[in-house]
């Protein structure tokens, strides 16, 4: 069942990429999909490492839009820092606690921290991330706590 879903997904992706629909090219595509499925099947039997996706898609889309706005704001802030003659750099390494239950939620939070310029997640430890900021201010902690709450809100409730 899982294999059929994967095959359909890969086929759709391949058709999108190729753009040339002749029989011989399509048969090459089918052969490559078969090869990929064989290899991933072997890899799955080697390490049983399933990552369940426990996100609500609509909330995640809303989060992405919010994230784009945040990226725009912090891009402008870092641009000001770069272009100002004095370069007001106030570096700081600090710890940010996270509240996500799932691995995927934590990955999304850490990637969002890094994706907004001005903050980079440096190290992941249990319970908190180590974050480096280039122009640190006390408001940064609140902004990151806000982001943390928003990522946690996209997780599906109920599942452990």
């Amino acid at each position: 069942m899982r294999l059929i879903v994967y095959a359909l997904l890969l086929g759709a992706l391949w058709l999108l990429w190729s753009g040339i629909y002749k029989p011989i090219i399509i048969s090459f595509g089918a052969a490559s999909i078969g090869l990929v499925l064989l290899i991933t099947h072997r890899m799955n039997t080697v390490d049983e490492d399933k990552v369940p996706i426990e996100l609500s898609p609509i909330k995640f889309l809303g989060y992405l839009i919010w994230l784009l706005v945040e990226i725009a704001k912090s891009n402008i802030a870092v641009t000001k820092t770069i272009l100002s003659p004095t370069m007001p750099i106030r570096q700081n390494l600090f710890e940010v606690p996270y509240t996500q239950r799932t691995d995927l939620g934590q990955v999304i939070f850490a990637n969002s921290i890094t994706l907004t310029p001005g903050t980079v997640s440096v190290e992941t430890e249990t319970g908190h991330f180590l974050v480096h900021a280039v122009s640190y201010s006390a408001a940064d902690m609140d902004a990151l706590a806000n982001m943390d709450a928003r990522v946690s809100a996209t997780e599906l409730a109920g599942s452990s």
Binding site: I71, N75, I82, P117, T119, V120
Partner: peptide
């Protein structure tokens, strides 16, 4: 690091 991430995101 942060300068590189301006290029990479914005």
């Amino acid at each position: 690091l942060h300068a590189a991430s301006v290029t990479e995101s914005g």
